[in-house]
Design a binder for these strands. Structure first.
Ligand code: SF4
Ligand code: SF4
Lengths: 165, 165
DNA sequence: TTCATTCTATACCAAATCAGTATTGATTTT
DNA sequence: AAAATCAATACTGATTTGGTATAGAATGAA
């Protein structure tokens, strides 16, 4: 259904929550405040730490905090930390060569790569702080990145001639 | 990994192929030309017919053809025909009320709905004919819809103040 | 030191989804 | 009537996903 995984969804909630914290906060507290099961939060924080989105401090009085300012962490970063590269099709994943067996004759690689790049840019543009901004006023969104999303205009259609094989 | 399903990918290949046909073409021929397994093509055409993207003609000398001009069929249409609504999160699916149990306190609904809408617009803008256009010249893309995708510029970041809970 | 606290690493499992297939039936042309 | 072709449905094996459990390592404090 073209979903991000539920775990990625949760991870964004966690990151967004961390952004609102002044200092270290423990795993347990995060789970409690976000209503996400403890074991699941543990797993997700693991990924986020590995991807330098969150920093951890071990030992008594330890906990977690964002590794960078909220305006340097994008929705794309979170998704990629949990799910791996954003690639609508196999051939859109530029981090590895395409294994798709239809690839040699497929005409759709280029278009998919462009669509994928567009999606990536969109998700990269939305930062944790943008989400934060929209929390204050549920009706109206104030951040630039989310604002432009709704104001984009559809382009005129320019049909190309049908080709016979 | 934020993938469309492989079946949706195949379906787009089939639709794109149909667009290049002058007249009716049989299931078997489609399977042969696209290198997609026969039984799989059969299933996919089923979905496409149900969603009025493809028309079928039964009986001897029957077959399939596009139900509308290629410039009226978008990538979004194909994906939705195979996978159902495009909804990056559960709450982004406007066709039904959100069942997510985190929903009551979740701050991310609005942002996700906007991101989702943006994705939807992007996928809706790319028509079968746009893909066709890009086939002729693999290096350079000629259609408007795909062209703008690559020329979009990132917006300036406007940080909002960090809020303490 | 010693212990409680807190994060780390890994492994496991059940459920859901996905990809692919098989089969029987309905419709149309010849 | 026979052949060609699409329709409908049901099934299955493989993969992915969501979620959990547990033993271990690091740190701070008594
Ligand atoms: S090469 Fe074609 S079939 Fe293979 S993943 Fe890319 S678009 Fe899909
Ligand atoms: S309500 Fe929040 S947690 Fe639930 S699907 Fe929407 S964004 Fe995700």
């Amino acid at each position: 259904m073209l979903r991000i995984s539920r775990l990625a969804d949760y991870a964004l909630i966690i990151a967004h929550f961390l952004q609102q914290q002044a200092s270290l906060i423990s795993l347990e507290a995060i789970a409690e405040k976000t209503n996400i099961p403890l074991a699941t939060v543990r797993k997700l924080l693991r990924y986020l730490v590995q991807h330098q989105i969150v920093k951890s401090v071990r030992g008594a009085r330890g906990g977690y905090l964002l590794a960078k300012p909220g305006n340097c962490i994008s929705v794309a970063d979170i998704i990629e930390a949990i799910e791996g590269p954003i690639a609508l099709t196999e051939c859109a994943n530029i981090t590895q060569s395409c294994q798709c067996e239809l690839s040699p004759h497929c005409h759709l690689k280029e278009p998919w790569q462009q669509i994928n790049q567009q999606l990536h840019i969109t998700l990269k543009k939305v930062k944790l702080t943008d989400i934060n901004a929209s929390v204050s006023s549920t009706q109206q969104v104030s951040s630039d990145a989310l604002q432009t999303i709704t104001t984009i205009e559809p382009l005129p259609i320019e049909p190309s001639p049908v080709k016979i094989d």
